[in-house]
Design a protein around this nucleic acid. Structure first.
Lengths: 235, 235
DNA sequence: TCCGGGAAGATTGTTAACAAATATTTGAGA
DNA sequence: TCTCAAATATTTGTTAACAATCTTCCCGGA
């Protein structure tokens, strides 16, 4: 999977469980709101509850799991409002990230980013390719930029926290026909600003890109108003 | 202590240890770079290593503790560069926060914020008061705004993560004579923008406020160039 | 039929002992 | 005296059992 970063052979058992659980959540094997029973999962992974609890605490810090004392853990379930909050924060954070990336990425990294967009363009032309793009390709672009910003705090916050949440809810986003193509065009614009080392413009374009995605999402949930908020357990 | 939020009687043992350890780190009982021995601390708290490890994982997610597998945990030790990164992120995050606060704070909250600044002004007039202000008062202002922004994601990121790190390094910041007074003036400006419900201006002023603090800090570490980076174990 | 109380069951929180890895000390050799 | 390696000691990672809490289901009463 392009986005899930390296599957490094983790040294400690808790870390391996963390990776496996995060993948299970993000790919949908565990769905938002699902109860997580420690004993059951521990048996499933062939370990004891200790390392599993350890992994759960880390997932909690990444906001992929919520825990209520003595009552247990569940896969996170965000309301529409919380998803809008996530977009608001992303707009500020990724705007900064993109400006820094324009200043700090190497020429080689920029060339690779360009290649990535070429591949995305080819994939968008095929129907299933558009599906792929919608699901993982878009985030791949953002991943690269976060890696290019040379600010470890930002990179971690985005790649390890925010983007994993976005993956979890990706099937809710950018559903409108034509959005993938438009998103790709926005990516190209951003790339050009980065290539010109125009940090100010890169920030502006990235903010607008995310604002567009948010507005698409807001229209989406407005359409099905009265219905259940996405990902929330039906009340 | 004004800043440390409520000392709620936590339900679970791990949470109580978390609070106690965070306080110990942030107040300086445990210093940056200090090794954390699980057995020793567990004995100190009168518990076993289980809940203590649990608390350590959570502190790790708040970036107050770093952990290397099989080698143990240490109190975080940020380089000058990492502190500048922290300021960069804060500028983006708190700018947004302040704009939202201008739109969403209640009139009552704004009045309380005004009272807080009055108290700070009185304290700045006394020498030791200036000291207090430099240490905790400044952050208190930022705490209130984060609580007023009505975005839970932002509030948590700032109050639970970033501000605690700032407290840890507060003795490194704003050391220049006159900075507390200037910071207080900036706070007043921000408050007025919030009272006018001028989100755009509030964001701009908050960003400038943090940028000023960062530049003060950058001059500070430039002065002692060649010396050890702040908080880093001397090489 | 609906509501509340309480016992039984399941689940999480905590503990202490064991296994594996890392740090430290000791001593031989140059 | 210094360096390197082996052995020892310390520390972290993991496990399984015990305690406390919550959830569920059943039953009696209105």
């Amino acid at each position: 999977m392009a986005v899930s970063s390296a599957t490094t052979a983790s040294t400690t058992l808790a870390e391996r469980i963390l990776d496996a659980l995060q993948t299970a959540i993000v790919t949908g094997d565990l769905k938002p709101g699902d109860k997580i029973r420690e004993a059951e999962l521990a048996r499933q992974f062939g370990t004891s509850r200790g390392p599993l609890r350890d992994a759960l605490r880390r997932l909690e810090s990444r906001r992929l799991v919520t825990n209520t004392p003595n009552a247990g853990a569940r896969v996170v379930s965000l309301s529409g409002r919380q998803l809008v909050e996530l977009y608001q924060v992303r707009e500020a954070l990724e705007g900064l990230t993109c400006r820094l990336a324009a200043e700090n990425m190497t020429d080689a990294e920029i060339d690779e980013l360009s290649d990535l967009l070429d591949r995305h363009e080819a994939e968008v032309r095929r129907k299933d390719g558009a599906e792929y793009f919608r699901q993982e390709g878009d985030l791949d672009f953002h991943f690269r930029i976060a890696e290019g910003c040379r600010n470890e705090l930002l990179r971690t916050a985005l790649c390890e926290d925010h983007y994993q949440l976005m993956r979890l809810y990706r099937y809710k986003f950018s559903n409108r026909a034509g959005r993938p193509r438009r998103a790709l065009a926005e990516h190209r614009q951003i790339l050009e600003a980065i290539r010109d080392r125009d940090g100010e413009l890169a920030e502006l374009l990235m903010r607008r890109h995310i604002r567009n995605a948010r507005e698409t999402f807001e229209r989406h949930i407005e359409q099905q108003a009265g219905g259940t908020a996405p990902g929330e357990a039906s009340a």
